[in-house]
Computed example of a mutant assay.
Amino acid sequence: MHFKQLSKFFAAACLSTVLAAQAHASNALVLLTDFGTSDGAVSAMHGVAFGVDPKLQVSDLTHNIPDYDIWLGAYRLYQTANYWPQGSVFVAVVDPGVGTNRKSVVLKTNGGRYFVGPDNGLFTLIAERDGVAELREIDENVNRLAGSGESYTFHGRDVYAYVGARLASGAISFEQVGPVLPSASVVKIAYQKAVRQGDTLRGIIPVLDVKYGNVWTNIPKTLFDELKIGVHDKVQIRILHKGKQVNKVVAPFEHTFGGVAQGKPLVYLNSLLDVAVAISQGNYAKQHRIESGVDWEVEISKAK
């Protein structure tokens, strides 16, 4: 064999190897539940994924969502998903209605990420921010762990982990998940979206920075900028629960926690570039008995 022929042969062989590797390449599988890790539930889900494809990369977003807290599960997906590559598959299980007639779905976003789980509001914020390219109902007649047909209370293992792993590994295509549903039919949780009303911004406290007690809002930097508040300017924050004022504070807007003395409050932009309030090296939520969720509203204005 001549040198040129040999070179072409090796080039073709290398290309074939690369294409074969690409054909078998899998996307990341990311798990979120309210199961905790004190028993075998999460390990069982990992085991199902391993059984589908031992090479599949499986990561845990969190398994510490409070019991049945669909809203917080929705927010943690919103907080995290866009830092994962296109094609990533998220299995989300906060499912107080497991075994009932609520639908099991896979949602594909406009950004090309997939979300597997119950259609009970878990995908509210993902659908709103990223858009729904297509929604499919899982056909459990063909997409269910073998031998699990008599199990009605662990869809996280029997349906969602199984379908998510098969989708991430390429064992099935999105079209093989099941029939198409109207994109607008995604179940959504009602909440106060961030709005401007005159010189006041209104929104909610969707979540707390649980480690440090910082109070996060859903008011984005783009809306906050409309108030023309600069660094060190004073900001008034009112926090209400079910319409009743729980806390009111005037604090400076700062870029960092070090902008105020230890123990003093400040307003800042969190890692998602949403407005938040904190105490430097303290726990604002604990000190003022503040929690989070759709019933916790916030009003922000420039202090006079």
Rank of each mutant, 00 (worst) to 15 (best):
15 L>M: 03
268 Y>F: 10
205 I>E: 02
23 A>D: 05
236 Q>V: 14
283 N>H: 14
63 H>E: 07
146 A>R: 03
25 A>R: 09
231 V>H: 10
178 G>V: 05
71 W>A: 13
281 Q>P: 00
67 D>H: 14
112 G>C: 03
274 D>I: 07
238 R>G: 03
81 A>F: 11
147 G>W: 00
233 D>P: 09
225 D>R: 07
193 K>A: 12
19 L>D: 00
222 T>Y: 08
272 L>D: 10
103 K>I: 03
33 T>D: 08
262 Q>F: 13
109 T>K: 01
176 Q>N: 09
121 G>W: 03
279 I>R: 07
172 I>R: 02
41 A>F: 13
295 D>Y: 05
67 D>M: 15
133 A>Y: 11
220 P>F: 05
252 P>K: 15
145 L>H: 02
265 P>G: 13
264 K>R: 11
223 L>Q: 03
203 G>L: 04
301 S>A: 08
146 A>P: 00
166 R>Y: 00
63 H>V: 10
184 A>R: 13
9 F>D: 07
54 P>G: 14
176 Q>C: 04
287 Q>N: 08
297 E>I: 00
238 R>T: 14
77 L>M: 10
100 T>I: 07
103 K>R: 15
54 P>V: 07
227 L>S: 06
292 S>W: 00
83 Y>T: 11
2 H>D: 15
207 V>M: 14
14 C>S: 13
264 K>F: 06
211 K>N: 12
57 Q>A: 11
232 H>R: 15
17 T>L: 12
24 H>M: 14
296 W>N: 03
253 F>G: 02
26 S>T: 15
30 V>R: 09
291 E>A: 14
99 G>W: 00
13 A>H: 01
259 G>K: 11
107 L>K: 04
151 S>H: 11
83 Y>N: 12
213 G>F: 04
64 N>S: 15
285 A>Y: 01
173 S>M: 08
108 K>F: 00
45 M>Q: 11
286 K>N: 10
186 V>F: 04
121 G>M: 10
1 M>G: 15
